[in-house]
């Protein structure tokens, strides 16, 4: 019962945050909406029994990505602009989104929806997770670190003043 209440509250917050991101004209408020959404999604991760991923979500998204986005908006001056309306692209977007949603629900209705099964304490523990990361997923893990290194080098190269 408590769980359901918390779930709906957090889900509502995430959804409102997402709507704010997409439909608010002011970029700072939009980014704040996204930050609220990421934090709420982090709480959902905690409720899905992987608490450390929820916390990492907060560190990575709310703590780093959103802050950098805010930083750029503030340092370069916010420009107000809402979503486009009335163009062909917009109409197609909404149409495609609607079709996509309908398709998803068609699949969802056909499939078998059950309550979450009980899991043991060790399921989302950081030990189990770390074990998986360095044994079965060792190569992707290393590749991810390479990717981050590449991204770092790329960011440094990009932000040098090369074009006036």
């Amino acid at each position: 019962m408590t769980f359901a209440v918390v779930f709906f509250a957090v889900a509502f917050l995430a959804f409102i945050g997402a709507l704010t991101l997409v439909f608010h004209r002011h970029p700072v408020i939009a980014v704040l909406g996204m930050a609220a959404a990421t934090v709420s999604i982090g709480v959902l991760y905690v409720m899905l029994h992987v608490p450390f991923l929820g916390l990492f979500q907060m560190i990575v998204y709310a703590g780093a990505v959103m802050v950098i986005a805010l930083y750029v908006i503030m340092a370069l001056g916010p420009e107000e602009s809402g979503p486009q309306v009335g163009t062909v692209q917009t109409v197609l977007t909404y149409l495609a989104s609607l079709l996509f949603l309908l398709h998803l629900y068609r699949v969802l209705i056909k499939s078998e929806i059950g309550p979450m099964p009980a899991v043991d304490e060790a399921f989302g523990s950081i030990q189990a997770f770390g074990g998986a990361l360095v044994s079965r997923y060792a190569v992707p893990f290393e590749l991810a670190s390479l990717l981050l290194l590449g991204a770092m080098v790329g960011a440094v190269v990009l932000s040098r003043r090369q074009w006036q």
């Binding site: 930050a35 450390f52 907060m58 560190i59 703590g63 802050v67 805010l70 503030m74 950081i126």
Partner: peptide, 22 residues
């Protein structure tokens, strides 16, 4: 996960500074 929690929360304390100043 106390330490991760603490790092997560402290990483969010930037918002107050950034938003107040802006």
């Amino acid at each position: 996960l106390g330490i991760v929690y603490l790092l997560a929360i402290s990483s969010m304390s930037v918002y107050g500074i950034l938003l107040a100043g802006w």
